[in-house]
Nucleic acid binder design. Structure first.
Lengths: 162, 162
DNA sequence: CAAAATCATTACAAAAATGTAAAGAATAAT
DNA sequence: ATTATTCTTTACATTTTTGTAATGATTTTG
């Protein structure tokens, strides 16, 4: 399970734009994120084609978010930058030697990924860009430093045990 | 966010071994999973080095799980096959142009991935190989077909809102 | 012991993801 | 209009992941 480069850097650019009050040019963005100018350009182009940012050419131009940050979920951002953990192409992609996977039906692995994907999606749906841009302290404290206080998943409400 | 080939096929091999009562040879495993023999060999070697399976050479040889399936969590399996979503190498890996990331401290992105990783880990910790091998019907029904019944994440217990 | 079966290791080939380069097109300021 | 600024597009180079090939080592069986 791996976060792709596009997802990492794309998310950073979105957060950067969310924190900024004016529009930002590619040179600004690339400098602020430590990315090369062409790579920043490629990233922003992907975000633009997904409808997440708007671009204005020429002097005084640059990029701005196309919606207010609180209306943009992590789901939207990741959908623009890559495929979900378990998407429609999964079974075709991991078909082994043949054209189609040997587990044609009653596939245990597919069930695992499907359930996992739903679990993850539920999380991403509920986080928006405004929350990230504001740098919530609770995020770090409650989740990284005190894992034992996680109420999100318990044996009782774990969907795998329901 | 992407499931790697090693994770996909490695998990399948583990499930296959969990379902089998006798030891399985590489030719058997590769045939059952639609993988080439050398690739199956590479996979099982990785699993062996992680201590998840044991190998016996020569006639009557093959692979068996090194522990009963209910004692093997998804966390262990994925740890053997790849890195976590957000691991110790993350900030170094995605450092952009420089040697270290421009977000040296108070990094919003790091907080996001850290929280997300904890969330995911909590899930994987609670699923074991025996559950997967038994092919739980509830897995599919409750998670894929009735997403609205997910109690796992609600605005009240979402750690991002705590 | 010899032969067949089986796992182990190393090096290499192919494909995909990642990142760079260079030239093009649009806009606003002067 | 011209120029500087800025986004856009296409093609290519590099690196990582994925998968293959070939050879070596170990064990059981007869």
């Amino acid at each position: 399970m791996k976060v792709t480069a596009l997802e990492e850097y794309g998310l950073r650019c979105m957060i950067l734009l969310a924190k900024s009050n004016h529009s930002m040019t590619l040179p600004e963005i690339s400098a602020r994120e430590g990315l090369s100018l062409p790579y920043a350009g490629k990233l922003l182009m992907i975000l633009k084609q997904a409808g997440l940012v708007k671009a204005v050419r020429g002097r005084r131009g640059g990029y701005v978010l196309s919606k207010p940050p609180h209306e943009i979920s992590l789901t939207e951002i990741f959908a623009a930058l890559g495929e979900p953990v378990f998407g429609p192409t999964h079974c075709e992609r991991y078909s082994g030697d043949g054209d189609c996977c040997v587990h044609t039906e009653d596939c245990t692995v597919r069930d695992v990924w499907g359930a996992f994907n739903e679990f993850v999606s539920g999380y991403l749906d509920r986080v928006n860009l405004a929350e990230l841009a504001n740098g919530r302290k609770e995020l770090k404290i409650s989740s990284v430093e005190k894992p034992e206080e996680h109420k999100s998943i318990t044996p009782e409400n774990n969907i795998l045990n329901s």
